[in-house]
Amino acid sequence: MVPPKDSPKWRVLVEKNEVPFQNLATRMMFKRCQMLIKLNPGNREKIEEAALIAHEFFTSNKDLVKTDLELIARGL
């Protein structure tokens, strides 16, 4: 189950420095989110943008990244 778009989980997740995900796609997508935040320090809008990217990614790839979704459900 993908947490809803406005869940605070997404913001917490994209601000993490390392995430223990299994799938290549998830790992790369989070790298993009991390770069967005790193290159725009303190910019809340970029954190929101990264959170949206993560939500859209998991919504589009439910089957491919099932194990990573389970990690999110368990709070990593």
């Binding site: 796609a25 790369m28 993009r32 859209e56 990614f57 589009s60 790839n61 491919l64």
Partner: peptide, 11 residues
Amino acid sequence: ALEIDGIFNSP
């Protein structure tokens, strides 16, 4: 590539 909108949404 890393910044293309939706690039990771399908293989």
